[in-house]
């Protein structure tokens, strides 16, 4: 059963958040940006935890919903002829990603296990090809986009810290929301499905509908993460939708531990650090990442957040 950090754990998370928030005071701008990347990874992996840790669904389409959230900013800016307000682009990104998740989920959830993996992979790649092979997303090389307008214009020198705080805020809101959600009867039903789907059905739970609801919500949250990536980087490319991103998010979940709600946040920080270290010591980043995954899969059975029970 998935645990959430208790009062002490949440206090530690808040402390960690405060340290991250203070980074602009003591860290180099490059590392502040890197922290933003890790926070966005945390949002993305956290949204996936709703499927993997809570419901027991391993989806390879999740990267596509992340990418759709990013591209929502591009599509809105094209439609409006300029930068959209963040109050429009964030809900827009979640709506677009959530709608896509509803369609993919309605089909993929008709299958189970290995089939579910394959269908989510295939539909995710379909969305990738849609942006890679057709001009609707500005082409296969990606495109620079105008950043959504915040309430006040952000001077260039303040961008890195402001985006860091913004990303921290969104991640905190997402975590708080999911923490509360897992305490509702809906959350308990998802945990029941993960524990024993056939029994849940025999009890009279509409398992398909519960799974679809989780899939849509997780997709919309991934879209929010993608939106924050677009806002932070001012650039979108089809790679954002690819299944390698889904695999990376799964890795963050595994690194952090599928037994704990806050695991993916730790996993995202760990993976970003590993990738950055890999970058520093060698040019062979895939080697470092591949070996890190291998070690994680072979040795780290319960993740950084520890055993769930």
């Amino acid at each position: 059963m998935m645990t959430s950090a208790g009062a002490r754990g949440n206090l530690l998370l808040a402390l960690g958040g405060a340290v991250v928030a203070s980074m602009p005071l003591w860290a180099m701008p490059y590392h502040v940006q890197l922290a933003s990347t890790a926070l966005i990874g945390g949002m993305f992996a956290l949204s996936l935890q709703l499927l993997v840790g809570a419901t027991g669904l391993v989806s390879l389409a999740h990267g596509a919903f992340f990418g759709l959230g990013s591209y929502a900013v591009y599509l809105l800016s094209q439609a409006l002829g300029g930068a959209p307000s963040v109050f429009l682009s964030l809900p827009g990104a979640m709506l677009l990603a959530g709608t896509a998740a509803a369609m993919v989920g309605a089909l993929a959830l008709r299958t189970q296990g290995f089939f579910f993996l394959m269908t989510t992979l295939a539909f995710g790649q379909m969305l990738f090809f849609l942006f890679h092979d057709t001009p609707i997303g500005g082409g296969m090389d990606g495109v620079f986009i105008p950043r959504p307008d915040l309430i006040w214009p952000v001077p260039k020198a303040w961008r890195a810290p402001v985006f860091l705080w913004l990303n921290l805020g969104v991640l905190a809101a997402m975590y708080a929301g999911l923490w509360a959600l897992m305490r509702t009867m809906f959350g308990h039903a998802l945990l029941g499905i993960r524990a024993n789907e056939s029994r849940m059905r025999a009890m009279g739970h509409d398992v398909q509908r519960l799974k679809l609801a989780a899939f849509i919500l997780a997709g919309a949250l991934a879209g929010a993460a993608g939106h924050m990536a677009a806002l932070t980087d001012a650039f979108v490319s089809p790679e954002l939708l690819g299944w390698h991103r889904s695999a990376e998010a799964l890795l963050m979940v595994l690194l952090g531990g599928i037994g704990a709600l806050h695991g993916p946040i730790l996993g995202a920080i760990a993976l970003t650090t590993i990738q950055e270290l890999g970058h520093l010591i060698t040019e062979r980043q895939k080697l470092v990442e591949g070996l890190a995954i291998l070690l994680a899969v072979l040795l780290l059975r319960h993740g950084l957040a520890g055993r769930s029970k």
Binding site: V52, V58, A247, R284, L287, G290, A296, V297
Partner: peptide, 19 residues
């Protein structure tokens, strides 16, 4: 092992084969 582990193991293999 769980599907999650299998997916990640083979994803690692992809990266290592590439390298």
């Amino acid at each position: 092992r769980e599907h999650l582990d299998q997916v990640l193991l083979t994803f690692a293999l992809i990266l290592l084969f590439e390298e």
